[in-house]
Each structure stands twice: as structure tokens, then as C-alpha cells.
Design a binder for these strands. Structure first.
Lengths: 214, 214
DNA sequence: ACCTGAACACCGTTCAAGT
DNA sequence: ACCTGAACACCGTTCAAGT
């Protein structure tokens, strides 16, 4: 309990503690002081592990990306399209475990090692299908955008930070300003059809990625 | 200058002031107190206009979406595909005017009137092509995801909040851990090829949206 | 209705100092 | 190297009160 060079804790411990608070009280509640308190540390001790709150947030993003099984994307027994689907679904699942964590991606550069490896893996897969690098780069960019955007919409729809009171004037209960959106919502409710995979399939169709058996 | 019921200011003025600070000092620097000071108001006066900082941030998102020319999407002289491209590029441009503002989208539900109208417009366009509502809903979801994700990556790549000091350990200068990503980056540098529109085209191809003349 | 001033319970970060 | 304690310059939000 005395001060001194004791390295009582690791960077991973700090990231884990940060996610615990994130899950319990939401993203806005994650503070250097709060994480430090949970670990029995002084706020200033945190700066031994991370140079700033921003750096901690970047490490949190890396932790989410590190949960993606990139090795599975190299499995040659599966067609490439199936492996892209797996990769994409995997990343989406990892973010689903931390609702709202996608904001951390939007708030800074996505240049961590794990995040970079995700892109590299996509690029490797497309080129391995005989796709020229320039085309593979376009396909990779499109898939990355699609997946990140879908995760963003997941978070939006699941009501992250929905304080209800902050909602726009609630007179929409009367007449819907957006009839088609409403109709589509009702239609999707019982169909239990998750458009994520099919949308990605359409995107891969467009890029002429070798189609799976189906 | 005396207190009293003077409505010296509008909600739009507050949003504008918030964006001014956003542009000048970054998203983290936007505070209720700071915006109030810029307008010559007391922080507490702000709560007459917005119930919380969150509500202000939602209004900022709405302001960005309101800059999209939805009417242009109804122009019957253009094929629908061209109008989707226009809509998507327009939204992207509006966010490009406020680098980093995409975080505001990720941090709360996207249920403002302008944001909803954007989706409704996409839905209307796809169905007007004879696409069944269920398919149009999937296409709309995919396009929304693609565009929002692309905007997120725009912000990431343009180095929003890049403090340099927070960057992951900088030993990548030696040997690239991601050779394909690096090769693609070099390849794209001189080509000046913006993959945004072409990626969207591939997505629309996949959904079988009536192709334009090309 | 719109605004002020005081107050509460917090923040991130820096600095000098201890072991 | 790792940690503490004090301090600086801030936050969002609430409350009672004025016009």
C-alpha cells in the first residue's frame, strides 16, 4: 500500500476497469479519476500508464479490435466471401459487447495495431482472390465503411444515451412524418431479418468477390 | 443587458456558436459554459433553450443534416442512382465542413427530424424504382451504414484530435507491420481516386438499383 | 419566459516530492 | 519507475431569486 516502484497494475487492467465503468454507467462516466479510484490508485498515477485520457480511449478501441479472430479469416477451407462475413460479424459482435464504444472510434484516428491488422487482413483476402491491389483497396475501404457505419447505427438504434427528455419534440405520436420508415419498421419487426449480412453480401456482389455456394 | 424576458437569442444562434467553438478548438472544447460566454449569457440561461448538453449536441447533428438538399433527390430528370450518389456526397460534404462532428452522431440516437427525413428520402427513392418495401429498407440501411462509416473514416484519416503524443508506440517507422495497407496507400496517393463514389456504386450494383447510363 | 449568482459535485492535467 | 498530495483551471447541472 506504500508508494514506490511496485507496478501493482498493468495497462490491460486499466483498460478493463475503464470498460467496467463504461458498461455500468455509460461512456460519459469514464474518467481518469474514476478508473484510478476503482483500481485503488491516485489519478496522477494513471499518467504513468497513459499519457492522457485520449490515449486510454485509444487503448480501449484496440482492446475491442483485438477480440476479432483474424486467424479465422485465413482459413483456406472457407471461401473468401464467407470469411469476410465472419470477420465483419465478429467485429460487430465485439462492439455489441460494449454498446456505445463506437464513439471511441469516431473520436480519433483508427491507427492502432489491431485496427490496422483488421484492414490488412481484408486487403490480403481480396488480393488472394486475384483482385488487383487497387481494386482490393477500394473493396476494403467499402467494407470497413459499411461495417463501422452499421455498428454506429446499431448503437443509435439501441438507444445509447437515450435520455428521452432530450428527444426532439414528441409530437410525432400524432402523424408520422416518415411513413415509409414507419412501414419498414413494422415490416422488419416480425421478419426478424437482420439486414447486416445481406447488405454486406450485396456490397461484395458489387465488387465481384467470388460468390459462395449460395 | 438587464435580465428579464428578452429572448435575446435563438436556438439556432446557440448551435451556430457551438459550431464556431467546435471549429476553432475542437469537439472536446464545446461546453455549455463556453457557448454561453460567447453569446454573453450565463451558463444557466442555456437551460432555457436546451434541457442538457446532450440536447444541444443533438441539435448540432440536426443542423448538419439540414444542410443536405433532399429536394434534389426528388428531381425526376436524373436517374435514381445519380440522385442517391448526390444525396450521399452531399451528406459527406456537410460533415466535411465540420471535421469530427460525426462523433455527435455516434454518441446518441439518430432520431432527429432531418436525419429521419434523410432515411425517408432514400426509402422513397428505392421504392419509386419498383423495389419492394422490404428490399428498399435493406438497401436504405446499407446505404446509410456505408455513408456514415465512410464519414467516420474520413474523420479518422484526417487526424481529428491527433495529438501525436498519444499515438501507439512509433516503432512502425522501421518495418511496416501492414505491407499491403502501406502499398495501397502509396498507390492511392498519386491516383487521386476517391473510392467513396465507386464504393457506393458497387453497393448499388449489388442491390440491383437501376444503373445509370454508364 | 428569460435571465442572474451562488453553489455542488465533479473533471483532466501539472508539479514537486517521496521511495 | 511508480506513486502521492496539492493545486490549477476548468466542467454540467440545480436552485433560489429577480424582472
Amino acid at each position: 500500500m506504500k508508494p514506490g516502484p511496485r507496478r501493482s497494475i498493468s495497462q490491460a487492467d486499466i483498460v478493463d476497469a475503464a470498460f467496467e465503468i463504461f458498461e455500468e454507467k455509460g461512456g460519459d462516466a469514464v474518467s481518469i479519476r474514476g478508473v484510478a479510484a476503482r483500481l485503488g490508485l491516485t489519478p496522477t498515477a494513471m499518467y504513468t500508464y497513459f499519457t492522457s485520457k485520449n490515449a486510454l480511449q485509444r487503448a480501449m478501441v484496440e482492446q475491442v479490435f483485438s477480440g476479432v479472430d483474424l486467424a479465422a479469416a485465413g482459413d483456406p477451407s472457407l471461401p473468401w466471401r464467407a470469411r469476410v462475413q465472419r470477420l465483419a460479424a465478429d467485429l460487430r459482435s465485439r462492439f455489441a459487447e460494449h454498446p456505445g464504444a463506437i464513439v471511441l472510434v469516431a473520436s480519433g484516428p483508427l491507427d492502432g495495431r489491431q485496427a490496422m491488422s483488421f484492414g490488412e487482413t481484408l486487403l490480403a483476402g481480396f488480393t488472394s482472390e486475384g483482385m488487383p491491389l487497387a481494386d482490393a483497396a477500394r473493396a476494403t475501404a467499402a467494407v470497413r465503411a459499411y461495417v463501422l457505419g452499421a455498428i454506429t447505427l446499431d448503437a443509435s438504434d439501441s438507444g445509447v444515451d437515450t435520455d428521452a427528455a432530450d428527444a426532439p419534440s414528441a409530437l410525432w405520436t400524432e402523424a408520422t412524418q416518415h411513413p415509409l420508415t414507419e412501414a419498414a419498421r413494422l415490416l422488419a419487426a416480425d421478419a426478424s431479418s437482420d439486414p447486416f449480412a445481406s447488405g454486406l453480401d450485396r456490397l461484395l456482389d458489387g465488387f465481384g468477390a467470388a460468390a459462395a455456394a449460395n
